[in-house]
Simulated scan of single mutants.
Amino acid sequence: MWGRLGRDEWQTLTAALDNPDGDRLYAVQAEHARRRQKEREAATREAQRPVCGRCGAKSTDDRWDTIRHHPGMQHRELCEPCLHEHWEQVQSEKTARRQAEEAAAREAAEAEAKKNRGLFGRRR
């Protein structure tokens, strides 16, 4: 009786020597090992993938590549949709602030004009 590597059954020595599938067995085992290695690498990559700080969604490959290649980029913790929302919010806040400043300047000009129209402050 003869036990062969990677097999559970026992064979006779002549059957083991006549059956030349050892190379095929090694190729199958090597393929399984490569597949398991790729799965481990994919799991490690997914574990390292950043998560959006606002919505909790995982970053896409494109976003992740952008983040890695531009380390000084602002708002790295946000995904694309949240980043667009953030910039829209910033733009709307700037617009609102500018409109408030214009309104305050207009009110100050109107107050100054009313001040000069008083009984003793008339201009002739």
Rank of each mutant, 00 (worst) to 15 (best):
E31W: 08
H32F: 09
H32G: 10
H32V: 08
A33Q: 14
R34E: 14
R36Y: 02
Q37I: 05
K38E: 13
K38V: 04
E39N: 09
E39R: 14
E39P: 02
E41Y: 07
E41V: 07
A43M: 14
A43L: 15
T44Q: 15
T44F: 12
R45L: 12
R45Q: 09
R45S: 09
E46N: 15
Q48M: 15
Q48C: 12
R49P: 07
P50S: 10
C52T: 10
C52K: 13
G53D: 14
G53Y: 09
G53M: 10
G53S: 13
G53K: 04
R54G: 02
C55R: 11
C55F: 09
A57S: 14
K58Y: 09
S59Y: 07
T60V: 09
T60H: 07
T60E: 05
D61I: 11
D62I: 04
R63W: 06
R63I: 06
I67W: 06
I67Y: 05
I67L: 15
I67C: 04
R68M: 04
R68N: 06
H69C: 00
H69T: 10
P71Y: 00
P71E: 00
G72V: 00
H75F: 08
R76P: 02
R76D: 01
E77F: 03
L78I: 06
L78H: 02
C79L: 05
C79S: 03
E80C: 01
P81D: 08
C82D: 09
C82Y: 08
L83W: 06
L83S: 04
E85I: 00
E85G: 01
H86W: 06
W87A: 02
E88T: 00
V90F: 02
V90P: 01
V90I: 04
Q91C: 02
S92E: 11
S92T: 03
S92D: 06
E93T: 01
E93Y: 01
E93M: 02
K94F: 00
K94W: 01
K94I: 01
T95N: 08
A96S: 13
R98L: 13
Q99W: 11
A100D: 11
A100T: 09
A100M: 09
A100V: 05
A100E: 13
E101K: 14
E101G: 06
E102M: 12
A104L: 08
A105D: 13
R106D: 05
E107A: 12
E107H: 07
E107S: 07
A108Y: 02
